[in-house]
Design a protein around this nucleic acid. Structure first.
Lengths: 168, 168
DNA sequence: CCTATCATGTAATCCGTTACATGATTAT
DNA sequence: ATAATCATGTAACGGATTACATGATAGG
């Protein structure tokens, strides 16, 4: 049983496994794509390596299918649930970073109107995507994802306003 | 002369060297701290390794002081300027990601009011910091940093509104 | 039947982070 | 003097990204 550091990636995997029960890396990939991936993307390779890492430290168990593709199946353990709970119930005061590539260019002298013109359609598309997800969301989706989606929507609106100002 | 991939970190170093002329890694660190570091942080070690990487590919030159600490001095080359210009004049439509640790917790079921309560002071402090920078900004600061700062301020205001809603 | 795309996985690379270290300056 | 902090740098590690690869399924 090795020690591993738990990163945001770890908690995403744990959170999804808690929600889904037993799951393959590919299944995780599918889930990420339609959920948390909207504001925190992962590469599919991480969904193969991360569960393996977590298994080494006892946060998840690994089984393999008999016959066929012998796909790996992961499931969260009590230890994993505990870690997830601890993380979840420790409210963080740490802030993310803006880290917008477009802002970086602006910062170093790019033409604001040109950047704005390129950014606007992208942000509008993203906003439309979020709104579509929200409007098609089944009743049983829990509050967390709903709120996160709402944050995404507000964020996109903010950026759209900001770039509109600069587009001239 | 090796090939290296140019990352955002690379452009930050190039951009700062363009602005500052000859500079040591420590000097870069100082500049980052009061400028771009407000929305895109770097670890100080990167400011030692990144210029070295860039030197290998001819984007910057490296000299060493005679005597004393023999500190390294970097300077952007014509190749470096070209790369920076190309990057700057290619308006990107790619979007950053929210990647807020607090949102991630919310997504996976943390208590919204508790998270909001922890996030609010942090965002308010950050906003105050930004506003102080803006109000103390000398006249000669170029437009790019000004706009980026403005984006940061709007962003913080957005988050404050969002978390206030949830704090109850 | 052939081809394109989806499903599934491994391996190598590389950048970013963390840890370690030491000389210089300032404060007590 | 001594401690503390600033200035300056190197090295190791590990997670994220990229590249590579192959079997299954569906469409034409």
């Amino acid at each position: 049983m090795q020690e591993v550091r738990l990163t945001p990636t770890s908690y995403i995997v744990l959170g999804l496994l808690e929600f889904a029960g037993e799951c393959t890396p590919y299944g995780l990939k599918q889930m990420v794509a339609v959920s948390v991936g909207n504001f925190w993307t992962l590469h599919h390779a991480q969904l193969y390596t991360e569960p393996e890492r977590l298994a080494k430290a006892g946060y998840v168990t690994e089984k393999r299918e008999r016959g066929g593709r012998r796909r790996r199946l992961y499931e969260i353990t009590a230890t994993g649930r505990k870690a997830l709970d601890d993380w979840r119930s420790e409210p963080t005061s740490s802030l993310g970073e803006l880290r917008e590539p477009a802002l970086l260019k602006l910062f170093f002298g790019a033409d604001p109107a040109a950047v704005a013109t390129a950014q606007l359609p992208a942000h509008r598309a993203k906003l439309a995507e979020y709104e579509a997800i929200r409007d098609g969301m089944p009743e049983n989706v829990p509050r967390g994802p709903r709120i996160a989606l709402e944050a995404g929507i507000l964020n996109e609106r903010g950026f759209i306003e900001f770039w509109e100002e600069l587009a001239g």
